[in-house]
């Protein structure tokens, strides 16, 4: 299908982009790689008056090392994220999950910042940055602000970003030495996960000292399986992990859709949490 008509600007800097967004009010959409926005436009599920194409702003691209954290430009493509040596070394969970996003052609265009700002709870990367305790940096007319991932996702396809704010960076604390795994269940290769689970595990003497578990598609936002995280602390064998994973769906509100009922999703969350944590902990 053919998208609805819109005006188009291609700012050359973040400041210019923010000005364009501020001038346009609520009727503007940011275009990065376009792999979420263009399907929405084609299906006429979005009708922006103005599309602000940030795709040619070089300062938004790339990964840099800032000591205890990596700073990933919002416009860095999935392809570049998953191949980046710094990401692979210090944020392996992000590299591994990004490898499972869509397919190679989509990963050439789609961006980390775009998929986070799109905030689809069925997306893979929102739950992953939540698990990594990442921070998101946005620039608006009044300057920059840093938003913890825990506060960034508000509701289905909604974030705390104001209409005139642009997501510019994702700060990912280094998780050196932590085991990780992203496990998702989907019915065909490129489909959204029915449920996805991101696990990050710090081990100590064969036991799980600390575990973080993030859930994709278990509610209107990505979630942390807090009860399972607490229960996993101290687990020293697969049976203990399996028992802890039984609480993975506590506090979640998964949706009902043709891919599954809330009960089925809760079941998947428990099973996938067990698998993801066992693999992350090297017990699989």
């Amino acid at each position: 299908m053919i998208p609805p008509a819109f005006d188009y600007v291609r700012p050359a800097s973040v400041d210019e982009a923010v000005r364009a967004l501020a001038d346009a009010g609520e009727d503007a959409k940011v275009l990065a790689g376009g792999q979420s926005l263009l399907p929405l436009l084609r299906l006429r599920l979005a009708f922006p008056e103005l599309v602000v194409d940030v795709g040619r702003i070089p300062e938004l691209r790339g990964v840099r090392d800032e000591g205890d954290a990596l700073v990933i430009g919002a416009l860095t493509t999935h392809h570049d994220v998953m191949h980046d040596p710094l990401v692979r070394r210090h944020a392996g969970l992000l590299a591994a999950a990004t490898e499972t996003v869509a397919d190679p052609a989509v990963r050439h265009r789609g961006t980390l910042g775009g998929s986070l700002a799109h905030a689809d709870p069925a997306g893979d990367l929102p739950a992953v940055v939540l698990t990594l305790d990442a921070e998101l940096v946005a620039v608006g007319p009044n300057g920059r602000r840093t938003i913890p991932a825990r506060e960034f996702f508000v509701d289905y396809l909604q974030t705390v970003l104001a209409p005139d704010e642009l997501l510019v960076e994702v700060r990912v604390p280094k998780a050196d030495g932590w085991g990780f795994h992203y496990e998702k269940f989907h019915r065909v290769a490129q489909a959204w996960p029915i449920v996805g689970v991101a696990a990050l595990v710090r081990r100590d003497n064969g036991h799980i000292a600390e575990a973080r578990v993030g859930l994709s598609n278990m509610g209107s936002t990505p979630l942390r399986a807090t009860a399972a995280e607490q229960a996993l602390a101290g687990a020293g064998d697969p049976d203990a992990v399996a028992r802890a994973a039984e609480s993975a769906a506590e506090g979640t509100r998964p949706s009902q859709d043709p891919s599954g009922s809330p009960e089925y999703r809760a079941h998947l969350a428990r099973v996938l949490t067990k698998r993801a944590v066992l693999t992350a902990a090297g017990m699989g």
Partner: peptide, 20 residues
């Protein structure tokens, strides 16, 4: 699928203006 500046893209998911 076509090649855009050395990488594959799905040309139904790219605007012509993005290929400028």
């Amino acid at each position: 699928t076509v090649d855009l500046d050395g990488a594959t893209v799905k040309s139904c998911s790219v605007l012509a203006v993005q290929a400028d």
